[in-house]
Amino acid sequence: NRLGIIYEIQGMKAVVLTSEGEFLIIRRRKDMKVGQQVSFENEDIYNV
């Protein structure tokens, strides 16, 4: 599992900021809110 803070939500995608200072786009889940810490898997990351 990886951890990140939700920075922005766009439709079915969420932008998270990881503890390494990396911004990633992941698959959104219904319970996500901006500012929330979430765990996610590598499979949830969109390749940009």
Rank of each mutant, 00 (worst) to 15 (best):
N1R: 11
N1G: 11
N1Q: 13
N1Y: 13
N1F: 14
N1A: 09
N1W: 07
N1L: 15
N1S: 12
N1D: 11
N1M: 10
R2A: 03
R2M: 09
R2L: 09
R2H: 06
R2G: 07
L3T: 11
L3V: 11
L3E: 08
L3A: 11
G4Y: 03
G4Q: 01
G4C: 03
G4S: 02
G4F: 02
G4M: 02
G4W: 02
I5K: 09
I5W: 11
I5D: 02
I5H: 06
I5R: 06
I5V: 13
I6T: 01
I6L: 04
I6C: 06
I6V: 12
I6K: 00
I6N: 00
I6F: 00
I6D: 00
Y7D: 03
Y7K: 14
Y7R: 13
Y7E: 10
Y7I: 14
Y7L: 14
Y7H: 09
Y7T: 10
E8S: 08
E8G: 12
E8F: 14
E8W: 14
E8R: 10
E8M: 11
E8K: 10
E8H: 14
E8V: 13
E8N: 08
I9G: 00
I9V: 11
I9Q: 02
I9F: 14
I9A: 02
I9T: 05
Q10T: 05
Q10G: 07
Q10L: 06
Q10D: 13
Q10A: 07
Q10W: 15
Q10N: 08
Q10F: 14
G11W: 10
G11K: 06
G11S: 10
G11V: 05
G11C: 15
G11Y: 08
G11L: 07
G11T: 04
M12V: 13
M12A: 13
M12T: 14
M12S: 15
M12P: 15
K13M: 08
K13G: 06
K13D: 06
K13E: 09
K13V: 04
K13T: 10
A14G: 02
A14K: 00
A14C: 09
A14M: 07
A14S: 04
A14L: 04
A14I: 07
V15A: 09
V15P: 00
V15N: 05
V15L: 10
V15Q: 06
V15M: 13
V15I: 13
V15C: 14
V15T: 12
V16S: 00
V16C: 07
V16A: 03
V16I: 11
V16L: 03
V16K: 00
V16F: 01
L17Y: 12
L17D: 01
L17F: 08
L17P: 00
L17E: 06
T18C: 05
T18W: 04
T18E: 02
T18P: 01
T18V: 06
S19I: 09
S19D: 10
S19K: 10
S19G: 05
S19L: 09
S19W: 06
E20W: 04
E20I: 07
E20P: 03
E20G: 06
E20S: 12
E20F: 07
E20D: 11
G21L: 04
G21N: 14
G21R: 02
G21P: 00
G21Y: 05
G21V: 01
G21W: 04
E22G: 06
E22S: 07
E22A: 09
E22K: 05
E22H: 12
E22Y: 11
F23Q: 08
F23T: 11
F23E: 07
F23N: 03
F23H: 11
F23M: 14
F23R: 04
L24E: 06
L24C: 06
L24S: 03
L24Q: 09
L24R: 03
L24V: 08
L24T: 06
L24D: 01
I25R: 06
I25S: 11
I25D: 07
I25N: 06
I25W: 06
I25K: 05
I25C: 13
I25E: 07
I26W: 00
I26Q: 00
I26T: 01
I26H: 00
I26P: 00
I26Y: 00
I26M: 02
R27C: 15
R27T: 14
R27L: 14
R27G: 10
R28H: 15
R28Q: 14
R28T: 15
R28C: 15
R28K: 15
R28P: 09
R29C: 12
R29G: 11
R29H: 14
R29W: 06
R29T: 14
R29A: 10
K30D: 15
K30T: 15
K30P: 15
K30R: 14
K30S: 15
D31N: 05
D31R: 08
D31A: 08
D31H: 15
D31K: 12
M32W: 14
M32P: 01
M32R: 01
M32Q: 09
M32D: 07
M32Y: 15
M32N: 03
M32K: 01
M32E: 03
K33Q: 07
K33H: 08
K33Y: 08
V34P: 06
V34Y: 04
V34E: 03
V34D: 02
V34H: 04
V34S: 02
G35D: 03
G35L: 04
G35M: 06
G35Q: 03
G35C: 12
G35K: 03
G35T: 02
Q36N: 11
Q36H: 12
Q36C: 13
Q36I: 12
Q36A: 10
Q37Y: 07
Q37A: 11
Q37P: 10
Q37M: 13
Q37W: 11
Q37H: 06
Q37T: 14
V38S: 04
V38A: 05
V38N: 01
V38D: 00
V38Y: 06
V38L: 05
V38I: 06
S39T: 12
S39N: 12
S39W: 07
S39G: 03
F40P: 03
F40A: 03
F40H: 01
F40T: 03
E41Q: 10
E41T: 10
E41W: 04
N42C: 11
N42T: 10
N42D: 13
N42K: 09
N42Y: 11
N42P: 07
E43F: 02
E43C: 09
E43A: 05
E43Y: 02
E43V: 03
E43G: 04
E43T: 04
E43D: 10
E43H: 03
E43L: 02
D44W: 02
D44H: 02
D44G: 01
D44K: 02
I45C: 08
I45M: 03
I45W: 08
I45E: 09
I45D: 05
I45S: 04
I45V: 06
Y46L: 15
Y46A: 12
Y46I: 14
Y46T: 10
N47Q: 12
N47T: 10
N47S: 07
N47K: 03
V48F: 04
V48T: 13
V48A: 08
V48I: 09
V48E: 13
V48W: 04
